[in-house]
């Protein structure tokens, strides 16, 4: 009886604040212009290129056509590199998550009472960005070199045959990808956990949830949005990455990824239609995968 007074829902309709205004459109213009110039135009140019056929007379020249067989040919030729890219990127995303989540949790929640240390932790996560991506990857090549410290220690304790290379293996490429993309995993998860209400953990503990159960039932589901954006931010660039897997860096001919194939077709083989077709296939694959993933995770607001 006592509750009848407040059993009605108290959901007031939000007032419509959105108003059409010419100023908004005006402010959008530079962005629209930028997108048309640097995204839409190249995109269509890429589609046209992907359908070109070789000029029968001049070698290395291509004519506009509707040569859709290009797509079939690149899939037939490069399916192995494509699958490898997905596998490597998935592994790197998994490892980045396994390392990145605890790190983000530590900085956002364990260090919350100590703002100074929290800021320091964040700086340490971001600090690698102050040095070029290429330089850092090259540095790992040195560290993993056959004469380098890691190989030296591993072979001295008998784990590794002396003279065995670490670079150029699947391990070194996945390692490089994981290393390079950890900040992209940590930062979104951190930003979610930084505002996480610790009283919910207290409530979980109060309601007989052990710390592990409370984490599984409360903290993890509430940080899922961060995990989803972190995995996307890691997986998408990792699939197309062509630095780590390059033989100049941590890879070899055995670890070639789709990015390396596209790069080689564009810059070395000058097979522009094949490169364009591969780029578009990669794009389509990522788009479908992301759409599916986000739909499954129920967070359309990411898109």
């Amino acid at each position: 009886m006592a509750f009848t007074a407040f059993s009605g829902t108290a959901q007031a309709a939000e007032p419509a604040v959105r108003k059409r205004s010419p100023i908004a459109l005006l402010l959008l213009l530079p962005g629209m212009f930028y997108l048309i110039l640097f995204f839409v135009t190249p995109f269509f140019s890429l589609i046209i290129t992907s359908l070109q056929e070789p000029d029968p007379l001049r070698f290395g020249e291509f004519n506009n056509a509707f040569n859709w067989q290009n797509y079939v040919i690149v899939i037939e030729t490069y399916w192995e590199q494509g699958l490898r890219s997905i596998g490597f990127a998935a592994l790197a995303t998994l490892f980045a998550l396994l390392i990145g989540y605890p790190l983000a949790y530590f900085i956002a929640i364990t260090l919350r009472p100590f703002p100074l240390l929290q800021a320091l932790g964040l700086v340490l996560v971001i600090a690698p960005f102050f040095i070029s991506f290429l330089l850092r990857t090259l540095a790992w090549k040195q560290i993993f070199a056959t004469e380098g410290p890691v190989a030296g220690i591993l072979s001295s304790v008998g784990i590794l045959e002396p003279g065995t290379a670490i670079t150029g293996t699947a391990f070194s490429v996945v390692f490089g990808l994981t290393y390079n993309f950890i900040p992209f995993m940590v930062l979104p998860i951190y930003s979610i956990l930084a505002t996480f209400d610790l009283r919910l953990i207290e409530a979980g503990n109060d309601l007989y949830g052990s710390p592990a159960t409370t984490f599984r039932t409360v903290t993890l589901p509430l940080s899922a949005v961060g995990v989803i954006s972190g995995t996307l931010l890691t997986f998408i660039p990792a699939v197309g990455d062509y630095i780590n897997a390059s033989r100049d860096f941590l890879g070899s001919a055995d670890t070639t990824m789709i990015g390396n194939v596209i790069e080689a077709n564009f810059l070395v083989l000058s097979n522009f239609p094949a490169a364009a077709a591969l780029s578009l296939l990669l794009m389509a694959f990522i788009l479908v995968l992301v759409g599916f993933y986000v739909k499954r995770s129920g967070t359309e607001d990411l898109l």
Partner: peptide, 19 residues
């Protein structure tokens, strides 16, 4: 620990699980 005690709390902030 808190989760081992036969005690429950009605929190000032409610602390309902939003998920």
């Amino acid at each position: 620990k808190a989760y081992q005690r036969p005690v429950n709390t009605v929190f000032q902030s409610y602390a309902l699980f939003p998920n």
